[in-house]
Design a protein around this nucleic acid. Structure first.
Lengths: 221, 221, 221, 221
DNA sequence: GATGAATGAGGGTTCATTCAT
DNA sequence: TATGAATGAACCCTCATTCAT
């Protein structure tokens, strides 16, 4: 099983109007993408405050002023990163909750999805950034809640409620607090950044153990 | 049940020699405390980088230079906050793990302890700061792991192992991953800062539900 | 007799590639020069430590940050002043030592050169700065010794040795201690800054008298 | 031959009034001396601007505030150092000029005096400080000129004039520019601080060679 | 659009000086 | 008199943002 998550998020104004994008528009969009990726790298490595736009520009291969052609200021750039990279993820999860798959299977898939598509990619950094910088960026937290969290939670709650009704699940509280399911994954992201050098954490095993406790032992794999 | 956590951390050289501290020494120590408290407020509200020592001084009612009489630099001030407020907490937990109390009781006590002595106090802010700034301050993360985390984990693992041996607990994996027990508490700290205005989280209920799943339903309360 | 000493020191990258420098590059280079001149004025008047880059910027007509576009820090700016103004001087002296001119004539020319091109210009200030700040900036002293002093001394020693061999000069010790020739010039620089208001020193006459003693009376002038 | 130069310069107000100084006055004077010595060490090593009164106090074994009981401010302390350590030197030189000794002998004695009592002692540092900081402290330069330089120059000029009249000396210009005699000594002080590590300078040999040129070869030593 | 030189407000840190004890 | 904690002005350097080319 794998989840294909689209990479290109934002289409140019020209595209949105249905026109064929000009060569210039294509180049411009490519620059924008380069800036976003470079900025993610820098923000991940240093956090918002310590990131210098000079470095972002250098890494993106553009001039510093170019950043301001695409983003109003440093903060807008930061928010746009989250906006553009986390969006696609939601649909994937929503699809899984809606599909007609046994709950235990979904849970296993989510573990794998997290390990592979979040923990093993830059999405880990984005989620970390939301956790570490969200307090300073209320609008970002709001966007993230509205566009990502609330939708995932709603999907999860619905599916969990069905699971309770169907007897797939014995802990009804999980439908009230789906956060309990995700908590170890969040902890793992924090832990990996701070404490892995002292005590590495096997994330997959951690999450599997967690799911076994919450949803009962898996059958043979 | 309540846990007494010492407040005063450092005694002056004069005190250590058994002398009565002079009025001057007392005022100096008070200033130091004021700086620590002011700094915690500012760091909590703005994060490390965005905190201005000017504001810390103003809030503490001292001159900017005074900060440097007590702390080598901004980073040392930051580390000292963690050191002085989290240190006493560890002993309390270690005591609970070592005492001859049923595991289920300990778990309940820890939930209450967390809600009252961490979530309801500035310790919540400290833990949040460690999670959000630890990546940028490896030494802080190291100190926290060494002085706080590793000791709590060790105590928890030992107690959990005994619990498994005695049949107090059915999920042996918890002894390997005590992080699973703490994960929702960490999540709650993050959540409260970012998303409570959209969807408040009843931390006590969250943690109780979690413990019920992990350790079985409580008897009558 | 006159000594042409080049003024422009560093050419821009564009120039080095043979391109016509852009208007922007020209303005940038002009700013750099302005900063160097302003800094020399300030350093001369106040010494290294007491010079404020704020004042340098103001005098140069640029913003404070602009200084840092051209020089890594205050010290680098200081060293660059020495580098750019003293460098060209060395070649001039070396040429004189190598040329086929009677020693007595060289000596007279050097006196005039010093009076006109050092004592009468900002080079006096630079040499004074090296004497007064060199102890605090070992790298500067090293640079000055390597790039200026040692080369002048080597040239002087070679020429003096030839002079001894040819019977142009009666005091062989001068070839061992060419510093004896330069000492009054150095003293004059110090003196002019400290004591001229109490007792002015006629530098040209001082140096001529000195050379007459060292190398014998000049013929008719 | 040796020159005894008094060390204690300033007597306490009590002493000046002819009273026997009290124990307290003695301790106070000792403190003052300690501060002067400590300050000389620090000023010599770092220059005026870079010297911290904290370090001076520490080295002198007194509290920072104590410095201000004895000296109005940092600058007054600096000037007092020069004032108190160079004063005694003048009398010694004046005596030599006035005594009935052959000029060539005086010259030799001065070389030895300089090498031993200046170059080999902290007086070297004081003279260096005057040269390096005098521009920033016009009052210091004035004091030094008035109390030290002008008196030495006057004595030297008188003796040199007698020397010319008596035929002891062939270069009459030296009576006009006695600075020519001292220049290499000044140069040696500068050189030793900046360039000795690259090219050590034998000061005694330098000065002897210089005197031989100015006043003719010595007889047997 | 793209550039990058220029700007200047801002903040961490130092240290001479003061003053209550 | 002596202390040393406290003060706060001063200054170097950074970096987000602007704008002429």
């Amino acid at each position: 099983m794998a989840v294909a998550i689209k990479r290109k998020i934002v289409s140019s104004p020209a595209e949105q109007r249905g026109k064929t994008p000009s060569a210039r528009a294509i180049r411009s969009a490519a620059r924008r993408e380069a800036i976003l990726h470079a900025a993610l790298d820098e923000f991940s490595a240093r956090g918002f405050a310590a990131t210098r736009l000079d470095d972002v520009a250098k890494r993106a291969g553009v001039a510093k002023g170019t950043i301001y052609l695409h983003f109003r200021d440093k903060e807008a750039l930061f928010q746009e990163i989250v906006r553009s990279l986390m969006g696609p993820f939601v649909g994937t999860l929503e699809g899984m909750f809606a599909a007609d798959i046994p709950l235990r299977t979904i849970v296993d898939q989510i573990v794998e999805l997290f390990v592979r598509e979040v923990f093993g990619t830059r999405r880990k950094d984005i989620i970390r950034l939301i956790m570490t910088e969200g307090l300073r960026f209320p609008k970002l937290a709001e966007f993230y809640y509205r566009e990502v969290l609330s939708r995932i939670l709603a999907g999860a709650r619905a599916r969990l409620a069905r699971g309770v009704a169907r007897g797939e699940i014995s802990h009804a509280a999980l439908a009230r607090f789906p956060q309990l399911i995700a908590a170890p994954a969040m902890l793992a992201i924090i832990w990996s950044g701070l404490f892995d050098r002292f005590e590495p954490l096997d994330v997959r095993e951690l999450l599997r153990a967690h799911m076994d406790i919450l949803f009962g032992e898996r059958k043979a794999v």
